[in-house]
């Protein structure tokens, strides 16, 4: 039997560059607003960080409706980076963040290296912002959106430039919609990323068969929720073997067991997004569950289980008889 005291003694903190998070849970960008929207229902003092909704240089109205389609064990979204632009954001929104009892990570999106640099620099110089996440993998904006995270040279270029623009911890959010995530992960690491967020949503589409039309206003969207969890677990497993920087594993985490999969695959922290739409108490339950689980295993800190499931990749045995 695990006592509450044992569970309290477990160290769940995690370090992302120079930033220490009390809990290894980060609320996924675009899923948690600025925190204010959920603060009514969830105890923000019991989460590690909020990753803010992505900001671009200019205001964006976002995609036409419908923007959300529910799918089996998941959800497609195509919001299209609706945001007020960095000028307005700094003037009207950012001050409200000072009172949040958890870390605040700004998310930067853009369409050129110059835009990423400008927004990163202006956001990062604010004291309310503890770290920057580069959203180089939004699947929901026309053509250029995902280009950065799908091209190793572009990833390298944008990460290097953003790295030069701030000393605050820099997280790069990777796309699963690539041939080999380890290539992009290594590029981001050598360009100066402090951590990788793995993964953004998986591109997808749903069709209304009666109207014979795409269901999303944007036609294509990003799939999230439990449906993408196995894709995310593998991406984390592969990326963790390829780089030394911490990985924030995310994609369909809704329970303690889901969270453990990601830590065991090699994530140092986890992102929780769509599960907040199921129940805003999920992040707290996961934190409580982790402490109890680790205490039950006799572990003193979350770091003890990170990557524990790493057994490499199974050799493919060929029977001699099959060779011909």
């Amino acid at each position: 039997m695990v006592s509450a005291e044992d569970a309290r003694d477990v160290d769940l903190s995690v370090r992302i560059g120079g930033l220490r998070l009390r809990y290894p849970t980060m609320m996924g960008s675009g899923c948690y607003g600025s925190g204010e929207e959920f603060a009514r229902f969830a105890d923000l003092a019991r989460i590690g960080a909020i990753v803010l909704k992505s900001v671009t240089r200019l205001p964006r109205l976002g995609n036409p409706m419908p923007r959300i389609v529910h799918t089996p064990s998941g959800m497609l979204n195509a919001i299209g980076l609706q945001n007020p632009g960095i000028d307005w954001y700094l003037e009207h929104e950012i001050g409200k963040l000072a009172e949040r009892p958890c870390a605040i990570i700004g998310s930067v999106a853009g369409f050129s290296v110059g835009e990423y640099v400008e927004v990163t620099q202006r956001l990062a110089e604010r004291p309310e912002i503890d770290a920057i996440e580069l959203n180089v993998s939004c699947p929901n904006v026309a053509s250029e959106g995902e280009t950065f995270a799908c091209d190793s040279r572009a990833t390298s270029e944008v990460v290097s430039a953003a790295r030069a623009a701030t000393r605050k911890p820099l997280i790069v959010k990777l796309s699963p919609n690539v041939t080999d995530i380890t290539v992009i992960a290594r590029e981001a690491e050598s360009a100066g990323a402090d951590a990788l967020a793995v993964i953004n949503t998986v591109r997808g589409m749903a069709i209304d068969v009666e109207r014979a039309r795409p269901r999303l206003g944007n036609v294509a969207g990003g799939l999230s929720g439990p449906a993408i969890r196995p894709i995310a677990v593998l991406a984390v497993y592969e990326a963790a073997r390829a780089v030394r920087i911490p990985i924030i594993g995310q994609g369909g985490i809704a329970s303690l067991s889901d969270a453990l999969e990601f830590f065991l695959a090699g994530a140092s922290a986890i992102g929780i997004g769509t599960a907040n739409f199921t129940d805003p108490r999920v992040p707290e339950r996961i934190v409580d569950g982790l402490a109890e689980h680790l205490a039950g295993q006799g572990a003193r800190s979350i770091s003890e289980i990170v990557g524990r499931a790493n057994v490499g990749f199974a050799d493919v045995h060929q029977y001699e008889g099959d060779a011909g």
Binding site: G30, C31, Y32, G33, E37, F38, R40, F41, K53, G62, R67, I68, M75, N77, I79, Q82, T274, N276, F277, P280
Partner: peptide, 8 residues
């Protein structure tokens, strides 16, 4: 999506 204003 979320029902509380967080996801737009």
């Amino acid at each position: 999506g979320c029902g509380v204003g967080g996801c737009w």
